[in-house]
């Protein structure tokens, strides 16, 4: 006998994500889910941001890492609160893990909460963790066809950060091509070019954060 069911396979995750979203809204904290392939510069962007904006915002980081706490230690060295989640080889963070990490943070004492997801451009996109926005990061040492290969991420991310532009003279990454692909997938996302090494372009990322937080506060 066939019985129709129609239930979203991610419903448990989405239910918990919505609970988190309500908590984040009540505390007025902007939550950003950083997604990229391994080594694109998520932690580097956080180190820069946490240092440069220290006087402007109260910030904390939830670090998802398969095995180590290296990134959490790098983040903690800036003075910001960092909570480590070891996924034990798992390829993404989910809303239950983020909910557990929140036990170690005082949301009311925060303006921005960054979630550094596990390095991978596929699975983290499927699992809502209650964030206001996903931020995609790609670096110029990767292929410039990343948006085309991972359309779901670039379709959903509200900002696409192209990192390591200090290396552009040495690689054949075509910024115009990558930007056009990202633009084709998402007509409104911000496309930012930065170098966490030289600091070039970080102003545009900080301006984006200012605007995102202002929009959140306005409701």
């Amino acid at each position: 006998m066939e019985i129709p069911v129609i239930r979203n396979l991610l419903e448990a995750n989405e239910r918990e994500a919505n609970t988190l979203r309500t908590r984040f809204a009540q505390a007025g904290v902007l939550v950003l889910n950083l997604i990229s392939s391994p080594g694109s510069g998520k932690t580097s962007l956080l180190e820069r941001t946490l240092t440069d904006l220290k006087a402007r915002y109260r910030m904390a980081v939830i670090e998802g890492d398969c095995m180590t706490d290296n990134d959490a230690r790098r983040v903690a060295a800036t003075g910001a609160a960092a909570v480590q989640i070891n996924t034990d080889g798992g390829c993404h963070l989910n809303s239950a893990m983020v909910g557990q990490a929140l036990a170690h943070l005082d949301l009311n004492a925060l303006d921005i909460l960054f979630v550094e997801n596990v390095g991978n451009m596929v699975c983290p996109v499927e699992f809502d963790v209650g964030e206001d926005a996903k931020v995609a990061i790609l670096s110029v040492t990767e292929g410039d066809d990343k948006p085309e290969k991972y359309p779901r991420l670039f379709q959903e991310a509200k900002a696409a950060v192209i990192n390591k532009i200090d290396l552009l003279p040495y690689v054949d990454f075509d910024v115009a091509k990558a930007s056009a692909q990202a633009r084709a997938l998402n007509a409104t996302a911000a496309i930012l070019q930065v170098s966490c090494r030289s600091g070039e372009g970080l102003d545009s990322w900080y301006a984006w954060l200012d605007a995102a937080l202002a929009a959140k506060r306005k409701g």
Partner: peptide, 22 residues
């Protein structure tokens, strides 16, 4: 037109039905 299309279908992931024996 190449830009700015909206997604109508493609992100679905759901259990549709079960075949059961009693």
């Amino acid at each position: 037109e190449e830009l700015g299309h909206t997604l109508v279908q493609g992100k679905e992931l759901f259990l549709e039905s079960l075949e059961i024996e009693t």
